[in-house]
Nucleic acid binder design. Structure first.
Lengths: 188, 188
DNA sequence: AGGACCATGTAAAAGGTTACATGATTTC
DNA sequence: GAAATCATGTAACCTTTTACATGGTCCT
């Protein structure tokens, strides 16, 4: 049982999902390809953590829908009580930023401009998602869903996403503002 | 040449370092163990990206100090001009947050309290580092080192760290403030 | 005496990505 | 007719972690 396995159980604790759906939905939290998900689901089924039902579809290909079982929920709750290991972030731009003085300002501007666009697009997608969650969750006046509703988790995660995006946008804009303009022949 | 290799070249573009030092310093940007670094350095040397000098020490074990070579600098500059791939973040707490309603508020409070402490400690370490960089860099009145100084990169990265820490601290405190208090028997 | 830090390496196992494989339906 | 989406799976490869291996110095 690795972290990805618990990640799948986490998603399945809200509702049954197919391997295809799980692959899409786990991306924001724990990126993984379908080639990793499908075999893992088979293993989770073997250990009775999840059950599997074949759903026949006429318009789309048939699919296997997985549901979490008692054993899976027990494992999930035990894992939840354990301290979360430190987050791991791997970002090429951090490495490039470190030796930014090796290249002309034009080159580094492109790097940060691209990243700024990346976060702006992400921010837009997040706002859309926040709107749709507000619809579904029976949130109070403060907009906060009750703790024991499955939307509480989604709500705090969406907020984290928003804060993180905003911080990164601010940082990129600040960096762009202090990179010197002009022809900028720093090398040679 | 993978990203870790370029990461090592990035660090070596500032100053020559031993494998041991490189292992320590790359952690904030691209976590890697020494078992990955040492063989990579040997490979970089084989391809003339870096050169290696054995430094004998009396108080401490002897060490190998690596310096970047022309070929390494060329490779580094070519890589810098390429767009940076998207950052990858893997955080167990995000997965746990998703199914937070599965456990009592006491359990989830511990999770977020621990993460809050993690970021507070990180914030403290960052402040110390920022102080020491300010000393070394011949920064202007605004505190910003010149673009072509090697401290420019360190400066913007330290600032990113500070912003990220602050955002995460705020988020953890906010989550703790909306997790209900009391005995909290949400699950029977 | 025990633990932390310095210092370098290899081997095995686990985790993750890319490529191979197939095939239907829908949208432009 | 081409591309995107839905849907599942395996194989090969690369990356990362954990464990094995060694040994000196410094501090308590």
């Amino acid at each position: 049982m690795n972290t990805l396995a618990y990640g799948l159980l986490s998603l399945l604790s809200h509702s049954p999902l197919s391997g295809y759906d799980l692959t899409q939905r786990i991306q924001p939290f724990w990126p993984a390809k379908h080639s990793q998900i499908y075999p893992l689901l088979a293993r989770l089924e073997k250990y009775d953590m999840v059950s599997c039902e074949l759903i026949q579809q006429s318009d789309k290909p048939d699919k296997k829908v997985y549901s979490i079982q008692e054993k899976g929920l027990d494992a999930l709750r035990k894992w939840l009580a354990l301290p979360a290991s430190d987050p791991v972030m791997r970002d090429e731009l951090m490495l490039k930023a470190f030796c930014i003085s090796q290249v002309e300002p034009t080159v580094s501007r492109d790097l940060f401009a691209a990243r700024l666009e990346h976060y702006k697009a992400k921010s837009q997608r997040l706002n859309d998602k926040i709107q749709s969650v507000r619809h579904m969750a029976n949130a109070g006046e403060d907009g906060i869903p009750p703790y024991d509703s499955p939307y509480f988790g989604a709500y705090i995660l969406l907020n984290k996403g928003k804060l993180t995006c905003r911080t990164n946008i601010e940082w990129c804009e600040w960096v762009l503002s202090i990179i010197p303009h002009g022809s900028g022949n720093t090398v040679d």
